[in-house]
Design a protein around this nucleic acid. Structure first.
Lengths: 242, 242
DNA sequence: TTTCGACTGCTTGTATACAAGATATTGACA
DNA sequence: TGTCAATATCTTGTATACAAGCAGTCGAAA
């Protein structure tokens, strides 16, 4: 195979990152410097930079003199990151609902109808359903309230593919089982925004953000068991949704 | 000066990090590969690794063929990180107050008295006041509720020296002006925990966490103006505390 | 057959020569 | 004196030789 020489470092990194996030490289897989040298037509120095960058984002672990290994997901870490997202987004959305004007509401409404359009094939013509686009529109709704409240950096920080969380979400998404829930819950969020209701916000967001754990369920211990770090202690308590 | 050859990579990194956090290397300063080579007795490859690691944590910016420059603080980013901390800690502390038992309360009370002890010299014998120790005990109170709620990773994520926020706090701390406020506010937090009161929690935490911006105040635009990125737009709105 | 040791081939870690861009210096020329 | 181009010297980027640790293979000896 010819080396992919057309890509700059940033593109190379994004490509590797995407491959890890989408489980093309599975947890436990080895990505050696030499494989990157061949693939991208690099010498070892820039290949090492790529690996070090992947490591600093928690996607691989470089073991000296042994190799670079795609990290496994840590359910404990995932739970804490969901908690973080839940805490932050509850407050952001509360503040957003207090601050938004009719034009803002209209924008959210538009994004929701867009989400419905993208989701339609999921029920009618499963083949035509575009998972990736659904995810994009889903996220663009969430980013809307952050953007409106001038919290773009914070949204970027929460949604950047660090550590285990993004890959966990990807497990949920790739199976496609999240579509009905996401559609339903985003509809309810829109309804809260339209009505200015903030009292029902917290339980709804809790259900929405912990949905991944609910849907993946026991497959963590069966189908996907090799993707996760061995479970020690009482991490099964995760199922109780706090 | 003899090279500091006794340190391993981790220690070298921590040392550089601490020097940047404490403004030994000021925003805008240049840290070249060759300076690290000389100082630590390294060749360029491991020196580059150190710099890339600093860059991935937002402490320096590597400009190709030009140099590596200590980043300036971005007030907009700082505000968003304070917002994050505020949102998360409000929820953590609310949950903590609902979950803690008398032994937990006693532990917090002990930490508060410890904080009072460390702070005492600040008022009596300013020379004997230990800034670093005060900060440690301050943080150990905050980490206590995270630890109790099994959110250690989240605490680590929020308090790790990324980006601008930790350095901003350091500006506040190095001046020492935060001691009375911190003592007072931690006392009030203890009081809320003892009484199980959660309704006053949010305003108190807002005051506590935005305290740095309040105390530094206009010095952002005067004394410390060179430490910050140029201000564009309406970032002065920061003063309104949301 | 089993055990154990040398060895072969892998991995990443380090040092260093060279490439190439950015910037400051220098000096000739007007 | 002022201007501007050549140049010297800085910076980081890249390629690569060598170091050194880990692991699996192979084979000889018990």
């Amino acid at each position: 195979m010819a080396a992919e020489v057309l890509l700059d470092h940033e593109q190379q990194y994004k490509m590797l990152e995407a491959e890890i996030l989408r489980f093309v490289h599975k947890p436990g897989d080895i990505i050696s410097e030499s494989s990157l040298c061949q693939r991208f037509g690099l010498s070892r120095t820039p290949a090492r930079s790529l690996l070090q960058r992947l490591q600093s984002n928690g996607l691989i672990r470089i073991e000296p003199k042994r190799g670079s290994i795609v990290t496994k997901l840590n359910l404990n870490v995932i739970n804490q990151l969901i908690y973080e997202r839940f805490a932050v987004e509850t407050m952001v959305l509360r503040d957003y609902i207090a601050a938004c004007n009719p034009a803002d509401v209209e924008r959210v409404r538009f994004l929701f109808y867009q989400l419905k359009d993208v989701a339609a094939p999921y029920f009618d013509d499963r083949e035509a359903f575009d998972t990736s686009r659904f995810l994009t529109v889903d996220l663009s709704m969430h980013s809307e309230w952050f953007r409106r409240m001038n919290l773009d950096y914070l949204w970027q920080r929460l949604s950047s593919p660090q550590s285990s969380y993004t890959r966990f979400c990807m497990l949920d998404i790739l199976s496609g089982n999240n579509v009905p829930d996401v559609l339903e819950e985003h509809g309810q969020l829109l309804h809260l925004i339209e009505s200015g209701n903030t009292t029902d916000l917290e339980p709804l967001l809790r259900r929405h953000l912990y949905g991944g754990i609910r849907r993946i369920g026991s497959r963590i211990y069966t189908t996907y068991v090799d993707y996760f770090e061995p479970f020690g202690g009482d991490e099964r308590a995760a199922f109780k949704e706090t």
